[in-house]
């Protein structure tokens, strides 16, 4: 810093500690709630410190779910979420790598048209085409399938543009060296382009895994059968039980479990995450 002013430094740390605390508070409360039993939530103030029902509550939601709400065990929902998040992340990265490769390294008629069609996906989030997309998926018989959960979300202009940007920074001479070394297009793609893009791929993977995991509206539409519920959408079924007090301890245990995987991913790969987030918007 430019000057030393002790009171400013103290103020700075205070702000950050307060901020971090405020950010963490709701999750702390939820965690505390998830370790009590139903009778602790009857009235007054909810418990603010953890209770002794942690293992019991988490075991219950993991293995059995909350039958009264028609929610399956969260173990199954976590599995479904994992499948969906991985499919979306891998699928988006795969098809975007391929299309960016085609756009950057080939000359062919209608290239601009292809480019603009991909660009259009940026302007059509699922929220603005809810019903017709649902009809397409239903028509293809993909309701209540993993394919229906993931494939409609894997077209990606941002990922394509990101890889296009990455490829454009790879020197032409490297491609020429590879050509002289006898590498055809797909060999070049596999041996040179992919390895050289791997940190970008990893960073994007972190972002897309979280994106896929946190999908809400789409799974809500295409899963009518509890066996394909994802964790993030499944919680709504527990919240929306009519005419009864919410089962706070089980809802919060589910919420904690549903947010745990992506939060762990972010914490473990903080640097990649920040890189991915910023690159994606370039």
């Amino acid at each position: 810093m430019v000057e030393r002013r002790p009171y400013l430094t103290v103020l700075t740390h205070l702000t950050l500690i307060l901020g971090a605390g405020l950010i963490a508070l709701p999750v702390w409360i939820a965690f505390a709630a998830s370790t009590h039993e139903a009778s602790d939530f009857l009235s007054g103030l909810m418990p603010l410190l953890p209770g002794d029902k942690l293992v019991e509550n988490y075991w219950k939601v993991l293995a059995h779910g909350e039958s009264s709400a028609g929610a399956p065990p969260i173990g199954l929902m976590l599995f479904n979420s994992t499948v969906m998040a991985l499919s979306i992340a891998v699928g988006k990265i795969a098809i975007s790598l391929l299309s960016a490769f085609a756009i950057v390294y080939f000359r062919f008629p209608l290239k601009m048209a292809a480019f603009w069609i991909i660009f259009l996906t940026l302007m059509l989030p699922v929220e603005v085409r809810i019903l017709p997309t649902y009809e397409v998926v239903a028509g293809l018989g993909l309701l209540n399938t993993y394919a229906g959960l993931s494939i409609p979300l894997i077209a990606s202009a941002t990922a394509t543009f990101l890889f296009r940007q990455v490829f454009l920074t790879i020197p032409d001479e490297l491609t020429e060296a590879a050509r002289i070394d006898g590498a055809g297009p797909m060999k070049f793609f596999r041996d040179i382009l992919i390895p050289l893009s791997r940190t970008n791929i990893a960073a994007l993977f972190v972002i897309l895994f979280i994106y896929g995991w946190n999908q809400y509206l789409w799974p809500l539409l295409v899963t009518t059968d509890a066996s394909h519920y994802t964790a993030v959408m499944g919680i709504q079924r527990m919240v929306a039980v009519p005419d009864s007090e919410p089962l706070w301890h089980l809802i919060m245990a589910t919420a904690i479990l549903a947010m745990l995987p992506p939060v762990v991913v972010i914490l473990l790969m903080q640097r990649l995450f920040v890189q991915g987030l910023i690159e994606q918007e370039k």
Partner: peptide
């Protein structure tokens, strides 16, 4: 930065 990873619906529930 970690709340980025929390789904909006879960933020709502919290």
């Amino acid at each position: 930065i970690w709340p980025y990873a929390v789904a909006p619906v879960l933020a709502g529930v919290l």
